Amino acid sequence: MILGGFAYIAGAAVSGASVNVSMAILSGALLSIGLGFTTQFVPLYMAEMAVARYREAFSNSIQFSLCLGALAATIVNFTMKKTPNSLVQQGKDRDKVKALLQKIRGVDTIDDELDEIVAANAAAAQGENGLWLILSTRSHGSGIWRPRC
């Protein structure tokens, strides 16, 4: 459980400091390790440490909490379908997407980011490998996705 806690803390720190895709992938991996440790070991520890007559209540409450968290995440994801990336996927007007992205970022200069979103969605629509897009970076100024190597 302690290792899971350290993995969570490290994942959160790397996520907060992420400046590129590699760091975002690393943070996701660390957070996943933390999640794996805690969802396996905490229920086991709780069941072993609980008084026998409350053991089932502890075990069931942990499972209920996990399911409730998954439901909350699903609801949040459903309500976020109005984000700039989703609007580009739906073929919405570029000016509307740009205005929303400017509002979210709090700056007016978002053209490069919007171009990247449009390019990534166009590549995905053409059936390009999503993993390749994640592992690729855009060459500066060209708007074209190119591999790092």
Rank of each mutant, 00 (worst) to 15 (best):
111 D>P: 03
118 V>I: 13
66 L>I: 14
89 Q>L: 03
113 E>M: 08
84 P>E: 05
52 A>R: 13
116 E>S: 11
116 E>D: 14
51 V>K: 06
53 R>E: 09
94 R>K: 12
60 N>T: 10
67 C>V: 13
89 Q>D: 08
54 Y>C: 07
71 L>M: 10
92 K>Q: 09
119 A>G: 07
120 A>W: 00
55 R>F: 01
126 Q>L: 04
100 L>M: 11
122 A>V: 03
79 T>F: 08
70 A>E: 12
64 F>C: 04
54 Y>D: 06
104 I>L: 05
102 Q>L: 05
51 V>S: 04
66 L>W: 10
85 N>A: 07
103 K>S: 09
68 L>A: 09
101 L>R: 11
117 I>V: 09
126 Q>P: 09
84 P>V: 01
123 A>W: 00
111 D>N: 13
123 A>E: 01
106 G>C: 07
84 P>Q: 08
105 R>T: 12
81 K>E: 12
63 Q>D: 08
121 N>Y: 03
51 V>C: 02
103 K>V: 06
53 R>P: 06
124 A>R: 02
55 R>K: 15
60 N>R: 14
122 A>H: 04
76 V>I: 14
96 K>E: 12
123 A>R: 01
91 G>Q: 02
100 L>A: 06
95 D>G: 06
107 V>L: 04
69 G>Q: 10
111 D>A: 10
113 E>F: 01
64 F>G: 07
118 V>E: 01
78 F>C: 03
62 I>P: 01
81 K>V: 14
123 A>P: 03
118 V>W: 00
112 D>F: 08
124 A>P: 06
59 S>H: 14
123 A>C: 07
62 I>M: 05
124 A>W: 03
119 A>F: 01
83 T>G: 04
78 F>E: 03
121 N>L: 01
72 A>F: 15
115 D>G: 13
60 N>V: 06
94 R>W: 08
53 R>L: 03
67 C>K: 10
121 N>R: 02
58 F>G: 00
104 I>C: 02
103 K>Y: 13
125 A>E: 10
82 K>N: 09
71 L>Y: 15
78 F>S: 07
57 A>H: 10
86 S>W: 13
116 E>H: 13
121 N>F: 02
56 E>T: 15
122 A>D: 09
70 A>H: 13
55 R>T: 00
66 L>C: 06
71 L>W: 12
68 L>D: 09
102 Q>V: 11
95 D>L: 08
74 T>W: 04
88 V>M: 00
63 Q>H: 14
64 F>R: 05
75 I>T: 14
109 T>E: 05
121 N>T: 02
109 T>R: 11
83 T>C: 02
104 I>M: 05
89 Q>C: 07
61 S>V: 03
68 L>T: 15
88 V>C: 04
87 L>K: 09
59 S>D: 06
101 L>G: 10
62 I>N: 02
88 V>H: 03
68 L>I: 11
121 N>I: 01
